[in-house]
Structures are given as structure tokens and as C-alpha cells.
Amino acid sequence: MANIKLTNINKSYGSAQIIKDVSLDIKSGEFIVFVGPSGCGKSTLLRSISGLDQVTSGTLEIDNAVVNDVPPSKRGIAMVFQSYALYPHMSVFENIGFALENQGLPRAEIKKKVEAVGEMLQLTSYLTRLPKALSGGQRQRVAIGRAIVRGAKVFLFDEPLSNLDAALRVQMRMEIAKLKRDLPNTTMVYVTHDQVEAMTMADRIVVLQAGRVMQVGTPMELYENPNSVFVAGFIGSPKMNFITGLPAEKLKAKTIGVRPEHFEFSKTPTDISGTLDYTEVLGSDSFLYVSTSTGMLTVREPGRTQYKTGQKLNLKPIAEHVHRFGQDDSSLK
């Protein structure tokens, strides 16, 4: 059991400030996902927690102890890297056992622990192999095995799925979710740029932009109540439509946001009307790209669509799902 507490964390490289005054409370046993566009500082924040990077100012606590100056190996954390960082010249067994070896554990105990982890991750028959003889999914499991075997209180994941192909990614996502179930007491911090991963796996999501925390909340909170244009645009696929001008002014907002699935079609002309430019048919859904006076809008229709390209369409947002944003792009409640 270990909670993580970040208080006013700043991190600079030279004059470039990567992390700006981040404060965060991660509860013990929570699965938390840092998400944001590339360069937002999410990986740096993770590396600061791991101790691979030193924070410039602020306090970092793990398990209620300040760890600012504690080296990575003494923080009780384990890390799964994007590249997995498996030692190419060591067998799977040696890879998993390396940390135990460094702790000076007796050989027999290392063997027992590694074999137990191997069994848990279905790697038993691969223990003598070198990493290069493993498939992508198996490598991922070895990387996770290295984290598990140490009994770390905190697992840190740095975009672990981004090297896998789409099918494998879905499978590994499920495996990590299952791992979380099997280790309910382990706090997990997971970094990704993929909002789908964030939505599907997280207990809570931390959205970062340009080194700042934009919003923290459960996936549905972020989806339903984004606190800013940025978060609203980042969470959800396809992206939320942002409409300015008359329709927004009518609702006393600078901008209103409507998700593609939250439009209705009207027979009579509305404030938002335009021509259907292009249609993408996915089978389960159809995406309609409508060119309007406020820009291109995306509309989602379940199943097939009856509308033809070039047809004039009148769109009406469903009132209860309209998000209003003020002058500073923050949500108006």
C-alpha cells in the first residue's frame, strides 16, 4: 500500500520549464493515467516520480515519506518502459531476477520467486530464452514480470503499448487491467498519449498540457464535464465540435461544444446548417462531415446514414449535452 503525493512540483531543463506547479494526490491502490499530447510533460512527471529525473522544486512523497533525494532503487517503485528495456544478453529468468540479485537475495529464493512470476504470466516455458526469441506480447509480459517480482508498491508504466500492433494492443490492455485486479494494493501510474487507453483503464485520469494539470477525474467525469476546451477536445473520439458565433452567443458563451453523437437533424432551418461534404461509413456508425458557417462539424449517426453528399442539413444540438465555455476557454457551469 502506497499513496503518492505531489506538492507544487516544478521541473526545468535549463530555461525550459517542463512541469509547472503540479500538485496531485494519488491514492493507494489507484490506477491513474497521465494523458496529454506529446511534449505535455507526462513522461517527465512519471520519471520524476521514479527518481530517474530530479524535480527542480516541490515535494514528492511516496507512502507518506518525502523521496525527493531518494534514488530510484530505494523508492519501492518498478517501471515498465516503452521499449521494455529488456537486457538483450540475459535470459528471461535473468531479466526477471536481476533486481533480486541486486538486493543480494540467495539463489534459491530468487529461483522460487522468478518461477512463481513466470507461472503467473504464463512464461514458464520461456524462462531460458533470450528476449529476441520472444514475441512482442511475451516481451511485454517479461517487462511486467520484472516489476511484479520485486513486490514494488508502485508500478510506473511509460507508454508500454505504443510499440505493439493494434490487435495486440487491445489484448495487452486487457492483461494490464487483469493485472490491476490481481494486485489491488499496488498503485499504478500509467502514461499514454492515447485517450482510448486512458478511458478504458484508468480509475482516474490526469490530463496534462504544457506542463500543467488541466483536469483530474474519472473517465466519465472528464467525458461528461470537461472543465476546459482543451480537455473537452482531448477526451472523446471523434473530437468534440466547437461552435462559436451566434449559436454560442445565444447560450451566453464564447464557445459551445457538442460531441458528434449529440446532434439531431431538423426539417426546418436552424442556427447550424450546412451541406454534407463527405461521409465515412464504419458499419456500426457513420460519420458525417458537414460544412457550416462556423466551420466543419462532425456528426455521428448509428448504423447507415440516409443522407447524400451535397445535401443540405439542419443540425440541432441536444440541449442537455451542450458544453458552454467562456472567454478563457474554461467551462461555464
Partner: peptide, 27 residues
């Protein structure tokens, strides 16, 4: 050499002498 490898070894609790001997030298 990949940075991840060295950092992974650091997290695994290897000191620099050990990282050099067990990870860097063979590679």
C-alpha cells in the same frame, strides 16, 4: 546504448559498477 536499459538497471537497484559489468560490458 538504449537509455532505457541503463535506467531500468538503475531502478532494478544495480549500482554503476554492476551496470557496467553486467549490462554495458556484454553489450
Amino acid at each position: 546504448l538504449p537509455k532505457d536499459l541503463i535506467e531500468s538497471a538503475q531502478i532494478d537497484g544495480a549500482n554503476d559498477f554492476k551496470i557496467f559489468r553486467r549490462v554495458v560490458l556484454p553489450l
